[in-house]
Design a protein around this nucleic acid. Structure first.
Lengths: 155, 155
DNA sequence: TCTTCTATATGTCATATACATATACTGTAC
DNA sequence: GTACAGTATATGTATATGACATATAGAAGA
């Protein structure tokens, strides 16, 4: 298994490299990909949990569930994938915890870039809420007046 | 090209067949799929637009943009795919408009099942807003108190 | 021994969005 | 008449995500 953490530690990321790409754009500069700027509750939740304190994956999942009153329950598989990608991009760092009983734990810590990414996520989450508010209003308004006019069509 | 509309018109869908699957579950009964119950702004917007009045794809796109004050701007390609799938499942019907100048237009109409689906979408949209609200509150609260405690870790 | 809990990880599937293109018809500017 | 813009439908492709299944391994208890 490759120790991504120590590999990264050598070539540290500079502030200029910090493009918060996940919540803005895809790797190739386009906006392709399902939840680019739309879905994805887990990544910001993860960054928020790490912002409070460092921890390992399994524990972070429980922290997220607790923080959000059970509204966000991350999938374990997805969680570890997201953590590794966050690390690849320098938003978190990790190291194997030593001297523990039980299965091995990889402890994650958020970086300054990670905090910046979380702040950037906030912008998108609020944007998304605005969209959702508008859409809900529209759906509600057309649903309430659906009985009145049914058979008229656009040209 | 296959005329799905007339094919469907023969074997009409009953009320029991109306499982609002897109916003609840995938075709196979699981919850697999990106935005199952999460993403997808376009489908409910489309059903809302069709709920106001029938129309063809290109026109519905503009109607959605107008209704939502530019918050939802559907991709043309995706729009037609969604419309065809809605038709496959009996939530809309369609027919080629005749006697028009310009390129051919396929006009879509919402069905009773489609209106039921829209009502069901509403439940999920509001659920999503609740989740989003909680997440935004969490992110905001951890961001504001991020300066205080930085170096403490979970066990 | 078997089961359960903790912990990390990979594989697979379906979906949504974004973007690039292809096509065809119409009207207009040059 | 040709090129271009607008209207209209449609397919191809890339990618991220979430949901689910599964594999692995250590530790604790029945």
């Amino acid at each position: 298994m490759v120790d991504v953490a120590s590999e990264k530690q050598a070539g540290r990321q500079t502030a200029d490299d910090c493009r918060p790409r996940r919540c803005c754009e895809s790797g190739d500069g386009t906006r392709r990909g399902s939840a680019v700027g739309r879905g994805s509750y887990v990544e910001p939740a993860l960054l928020a949990a790490l912002s409070v304190s460092a921890g390992h994956g399994y524990d972070l999942a429980r922290a997220i569930e607790e923080m959000t009153d059970g509204e966000v329950v991350p999938d374990a598989g997805g969680l570890y994938r997201i953590l590794r990608r966050l690390e690849e991009d320098g938003f978190v760092t990790s190291e194997w915890q030593e001297g523990d009983s039980g299965p091995q734990r990889r402890s994650y810590q958020i970086t300054a870039d990670g905090r910046a990414l979380l702040a950037h996520w906030m912008v998108h989450l609020e944007e998304r809420r605005r969209t959702l508010d508008v859409l809900i209003d529209v759906v509600r308004s057309v649903s309430s007046s659906a009985d009145a006019d049914t058979d008229q069509g656009r040209q």
